[in-house]
Design a protein around this nucleic acid. Structure first.
Length: 812
RNA sequence: GGCGAAGUGGCGGAACUGGCAGACGCACCAGACUCAAAAUCUGGCGAAGUUCACUCUUCGUGUGGGUUCGACCCCCACCUUCGCCACCA
């Protein structure tokens, strides 16, 4: 049969059309009689076009899903469609379209693009988290949390992005700036906001990291540990001189308390208001403002004496009360005891302002410590505790504080409760109302969902536009029947992404967020694939949400996903691909130029998937050449009617060996490493070998080679595989064929190639049968002519033999 | 400043458990085919030296030390790059 030229566009269009006519053919990768496998990838926004950065993420997951399916797993392989708010909102405004409708039409567009890329996910699972249907369940969860005290409203200093015109959670502030707006400093505002009590799960979130060890990337776990930031210590009350007012401080080193020479308050600490005159208040305010405007790292320590003193409850000492800009209101109690003898920051501050320095911990050696002495040691000048070791003193003194009612052992977290209020139009409305008589009243469950009013003017700036919509805002209180106002805040869109993958399992359920039995079958997710940028955002929120749902009795798994894989970004010409840089390559233009298969293969071939990958057009050309070589070889040999069906030739044996070695390598790569770049390299080697041996191959071997080659390449280049399968006269679809097994016997080399080294340098090599004994190898090596010059006149000290691998002769 | 990861040809990257460094591809060079070009096929391609030639030798995985018969791989110190956190008491 004459070979055919490789024309990816024609091939791919043909199969797209066929698959469109028979959507079932490409859809239900779910079969409950099989073992389960759930792959999930995160998708950013539906508002833009699919670009090659997304394609790579999906190609990684899609190749895996296809492999698993062929191995007999029932695969649920959805790709997330979170309608994150702002981009969709802005796009809708710009296009004067209804936002719901706009988002849904974007999703249709995304579906088309995914289909063109040949991704094999379950279409029936699609959800958009912006739909009223999804709002209902967000609101339902919110009410449950409200009932359990896991959702609450309080006035607090919160992060405000002037560009977004909304509040942000701590996790969404990056280097003091909004995560969406590089270089826009976040302001601190004192506002009434809704919070979810994620800190109730701080300990569990931290401890369970141990269970993820080995299955999640280490750096993600480290980031989560740091973010949760547990520290064990004690709280102690210092009493304001001449009053009963207590100032509570948090310390991890209660053993150093006899060395406390000051109490330092954060500028925003509530007690400061009572202590300071107008001038002092102004200075404190100035500190807060200047802190907000400065980036981290370039803040100089500053402070001033309040003129007041406080009493150390352990020894009755009166110490001055200062205000210091380095004390954070948001951590611990917002007040510290300054122990300059044993803390670097306190030392720096006290030295600067001439505050006394009193060392009270001495090293084990008994030498006087050089201040600041930061290690544990033995207590000195500490009253009845003198002579105790630091570790013991920490316990004993915390117990004493508790017994005498002026403190206790305490644990502090860096993690704060999750502020979910947003002053945006776009997002799930928080389902409560404010009644003058009854206060905060939840919307009755039967009235859910509270949906957003449509067709309103959206400015994208300032307060939520909902405030100006009377039909939305004015309601009757369900308790007293009087006039009430709706909550105008909407939920953070990270609420949506915290559980959307659960909804995928039962996307059209109208009586519950999902059927627990379905979740029990699919969860936890076997494999999650997403960007590392979500390490302390989405990936911590979704862990929290899972534990919360478990405690509501809806699910039984403790973690959302067993394994996490963080893929590397796609960059172009050394720069991260982004719309603002204008360097994105859209999937459409890539398909037009090279075809979807070429794009997929190149993105997997260029670098291992966890690494960054540089997109170059030249590289894509290379993958195009490779797929062309495959296609031409298969088409010109597809009839495979050859004579010499009898004895296998040398070429046959060689090719068979290579085939099974390749198959073994790819199978192993899929099972463990996911280094698809080496998988594809192995197929390239096989194809090179096929070209070299082509004229000498017999028909039977050719048949086996073609079949397995097509099956092997299917997860990477599905359209090409389908087309070649048809050329060979086989019935498709290829991805429903079982994954071929390799034969270890055929994969084995005929003879072992044993390297002979002299003093660790390669001097020759011999071929011997496998399993040759050590003595035999030793003799053969010593007799090898090529090594003789290196043994000449030298004494053989020892010979190290590694069977089937190498012989190292050590001489002097 | 703290924690973590990484440094291999002109480039992307291989080398999986301490055992042949540079698989595979890109770029480049040469040859075949062609009137010619493209496409395709074949060969070459770390550096220096060496042979008429098949070859062979030495050096070579950021730098300096160490462990080992043997180190890209393990240990110590340093340099560089990237990532995260950054006064967390």
């Amino acid at each position: 049969m004459p070979e055919k030229p490789y024309d990816p566009q024609t091939i791919e269009l043909k199969w797209q059309e066929r698959w469109l006519q028979d959507p079932d053919l490409y859809k239900p990768l779910e079969d409950l009689s099989r073992p389960k496998f759930y792959v999930l990838e995160m998708l950013p926004y539906p508002s833009g076009t699919l670009h090659i950065g997304h394609v790579r993420n999906y190609a990684i997951g899609d190749a895996l899903a296809r492999y698993k399916w062929m191995r007999g797993f029932s695969v649920l392989h959805p790709m997330g469609w979170d309608a994150f708010g702002l981009p969709a909102e802005n796009a809708a405004i710009a296009n004067k379209r209804d936002p719901y409708e706009w988002t849904m039409s974007n999703i249709e567009n995304m579906k088309r693009q995914h289909r063109r890329m040949g991704f094999s996910y379950d279409w029936s699972r699609e959800i958009a988290t912006c739909q009223p249907d999804y709002y209902r369940w967000n609101q339902w969860f919110f009410l449950k949390m409200l009932e359990k005290g896991l959702a609450y409203r309080k006035k607090a200093l919160v992060n405000w992005c002037p560009e977004c015109g909304t509040v942000l959670a701590n996790e969404q502030v990056v280097n003091g700036c909004c995560w969406r707006h590089d270089g826009v400093s976040v302001e601190q505002r004192d506002l009434e906001q809704w919070f979810l009590r994620i800190t109730a799960y701080a300990d569990e979130l931290l401890n369970d990291i141990g269970n993820l060890e080995g299955h999640w990337p280490e750096r993600v776990l480290t980031m989560q540990r740091n973010w949760i930031g547990r520290s064990e210590g004690a709280e102690v009350d210092f009493t304001l001189e001449g009053t009963e007012t207590r100032i509570r401080v948090f310390t991890t080193r209660i053993d150093t308390i006899y060395g406390a020479t000051a109490v330092i308050l954060a500028p925003g600490h509530p007690v400061t208001a009572g202590l300071l005159d107008d001038n002092g208040k102004a200075v404190a305010k100035g500190m807060i403002d200047s802190l907000a405007s400065k980036g981290p790292g370039d803040i100089e320590k500053e402070g001033f004496f309040t003129g007041h003193y406080a009493m150390n409850p352990f020894n009755g000492a009166m110490v001055p009360i200062w205000v210091g800009n380095f004390v954070l209101m948001g951590y611990g109690t917002g007040a510290i005891m300054a122990v300059p003898g044993h803390d670097e920051r306190d030392f720096e501050f006290c030295k600067q302002y001439g505050i006394a320095i009193a060392p009270v911990i001495w090293p084990e050696s008994g030498d006087e410590p050089a201040v600041p002495f930061l290690e544990y040691g033995v207590l000195h000048d500490s009253g009845e505790y003198s002579g105790l070791a630091s570790e013991e003193a920490r316990r004993v003194m915390a117990a004493k504080a508790k017994a005498d009612g002026f403190g206790k052992a305490a644990i502090t977290y860096r993690l704060k409760d999750w502020g979910i209020s947003r002053q945006r139009y776009w997002g799930t409305p928080i389902p409560v109302m404010h009644c003058p008589n009854d206060g905060i009243v939840p919307v009755p469950e039967s009235d859910l969902p509270v949906v957003l009013p449509l067709g309103i003017e959206i400015t994208g700036k300032g307060r939520s536009p909902l405030v100006h919509v009377p039909e939305f805002m004015n309601v009757k209180c369900p308790k007293c029947g009087g006039d009430a106002r709706r909550e105008s805040d909407t939920m953070d869109t990270f609420v949506d992404s915290s559980w959307y993958f659960y909804r995928y399992c039962d996307a059209h359920n109208s009586t519950a967020p999902f059927d627990s039995a379905k979740i029990a079958y699919w969860f936890p997710i076997d494999q999650y694939i997403g960007g590392v940028e979500h390490a302390i955002l989405h990936l911590i929120y979704s862990r929290f949400w899972t534990k919360m749902m478990r405690d509501l009795g809806l699910i039984t798994n403790d973690e959302p996903t067993t394994r996490l894989f963080t893929q590397g970004m796609v960059i172009k010409e050394g720069a991260k691909m982004s719309k603002s840089k204008g360097n994105i390559v859209s999937a459409d233009s890539m398909i037009e130029k090279y075809g979807a298969d070429v794009g997929r293969v190149f993105e997997l071939f260029a670098a291992p998937p966890e690494k960054e990958m540089d997109w170059t057009d030249a590289g894509a050309e290379g993958s195009m050449r490779f797929l062309g070589r495959v296609y031409r070889f298969v088409t010109r040999n597809a009839d495979q009617v050859r004579l010499n069906q009898g004895e296998l030739t040398d070429a046959d044996r060689k090719v068979l060996r290579k085939l099974h070695q390749t198959l073994r390598k790819i199978t192993e790569d899929f099972e463990s490493r996911w280094h698809f770049n080496t998988s594809i390299a192995a197929i390239m080697e096989l194809v090179n070998e096929l070209y070299a041996q082509e004229s000498n191959l017999s028909g039977t071997v050719l048949t086996e080679v073609l079949e397995k080659l097509v099956l092997m390449i299917e997860p990477f280049a599905p359209y090409l595989a389908e087309e070649m399968w048809e050329e060979m006269g086989r019935k498709g679809p290829v991805f429903k064929q079982p994954w071929p097994a390799f034969d270890p016997e055929l994969a084995r080399e005929a003879e072992a190639d044993v390297v002979i080294q002299v003093n660790g340098k390669v001097r020759g090599r011999i071929s011997v049968g496998f399993g040759a004994d050590k003595e035999h190898l030793r003799e053969k090596a010593l007799a090898e002519p090529k090594v003789q010059p290196f043994l000449d006149g030298k004494k053989v000290l020892t010979v190290i033999v590694v069977p089937d691998k190498l012989v190292n002769i050590v001489v002097k």
